[in-house]
Nucleic acid binder design. Structure first.
Lengths: 225, 225
DNA sequence: TAGATTGTTAATCGATTAACAATC
DNA sequence: TAGATTGTTAATCGATTAACAATC
């Protein structure tokens, strides 16, 4: 959510296709792309061959025009009168998101939340692999959790290089978040998923997405009756 | 995030004050309100008496006009030339959000993620208390985790009533999410925080906020170089 | 008073939706 | 061909930002 304060960015892919193509891609579109991907995965498991923008929209509580427009940013993937081919569309979306190859994650901060994420299966299912964890507590270093080795944070630079980390997941205590983030960036990591409720000051070349558990609850609280 | 598909709703409080007052409150404003609340909490701990919209904005990577406009939806809380009184503003925001009294949560589904949330301190710090957990696994029922008693899901109706649950946190397997949500709603619960990557069909009287961990990672992946 | 910062308006920007010709 | 559904445009809606008179 707070990632919403980042500027819209143009597609890193060259893009042919629809009249939307070449335009800036709204952040909201990218988020929905990964929703479409998940629905298509389910439909593929059910052996569905085709799907309409209307059905896709219904599965997500969206408007069908929005689905068509979102996809049109990247090309003409559908067949008028028929809809979209499930398997084909899924492949294309995964390609666009860059999740067709495995994405390598490091998790930094093996506390309560960090530990849960190490055992959480949801990431692997979408092709994201936590290949290293880091902590400063010497008692944790050297062991593994959820099959992931825990390294000393002091070894960050070496391990990050050896493991070719794409994205770091931040689950450290709030008072260390900024320092750790800076260190990660120094090691060449350019994408952070930040679970710590702290706004990180990072260079423009680095992308941070925020997951803020408390915000969602507090705002729910507002709508109680 | 996916909560964005819900319609904007007018303030449940009667509201005097600024010229914004009486207007529909954008969802984005409510989310930022809880961000302001957290910063103000920190400033209060540091014994800061006053704060300007500019400083508040800097702590969150926002625009100062946005901060002032957000607050103006609910009244005139500041002093021209001076700024806002930290403690006063915090109290008012908590009042608006309804977090000035404790909010009572039930967690449904004591798996990996559910267990982590039970031990996670971040909720309690903001005045949210998980007072009951539910699972269908008889081996878990009767024990406690993070000090929270785990009940049989079959006892949902009774416990929900006795414990006066405000919000249910959903961390069940995807294939049970809709059925469990329906059951919760039947028990009179009107607000759900859903961690399951499934769109829930619920009546208009029920509010669902989604926390989707995979989406944030997948969209980050898109922006990798 | 001089300096600072609010509350508010108007301008901009971005995202969603409705409608429909084009296409299979 | 008749029916269905796409891709696209134009209209609407909502959110952010700049600017500044009013106020302390």
């Amino acid at each position: 959510m707070s990632s919403d304060s980042l500027p819209t960015v143009s597609a890193p892919e060259e893009r042919p296709g629809g009249s939307n193509a070449g335009k800036k891609i709204p952040k909201a579109v990218i988020k929905r792309l990964s929703l479409y991907s998940r629905i298509l995965q389910n439909l593929e498991i059910l052996d569905r061959e085709k799907v309409s923008s209307r059905e896709l929209a219904q599965h997500l509580g969206l408007n069908s025009a929005q689905v068509r427009k979102d996809l049109a940013y990247f090309g003409q993937f559908g067949v008028p009168g028929l809809g979209y081919y499930v398997s084909d569309l899924r492949k294309r979306i995964k390609r666009i998101l860059g999740t067709d190859r495995g994405v390598r994650l490091a998790l930094v901060g093996v506390g309560n939340l960090g530990t849960a994420l190490l055992s959480y299966g949801g990431f692997a299912r979408q092709g994201f692999h936590i290949v290293a964890a880091f902590d400063s507590d010497k008692r944790k270093v050297g062991s593994t959790k959820g099959g992931v080795p825990i390294h000393d944070i002091a070894d960050l630079e070496r391990v990050a290089r050896e493991q070719r980390i794409d994205i770091a997941v931040l689950t450290v205590p709030a008072d260390h978040a900024q320092a750790v983030a800076t260190k990660l960036i120094d090691c060449g990591i350019t994408a952070l998923l930040n679970f710590v409720p702290v706004h990180l000051k990072v260079p423009d070349s680095v992308r941070v997405h925020y997951v803020d558990l408390s915000i969602e609850i507090e705002s729910l609280s507002y709508y109680l009756r």
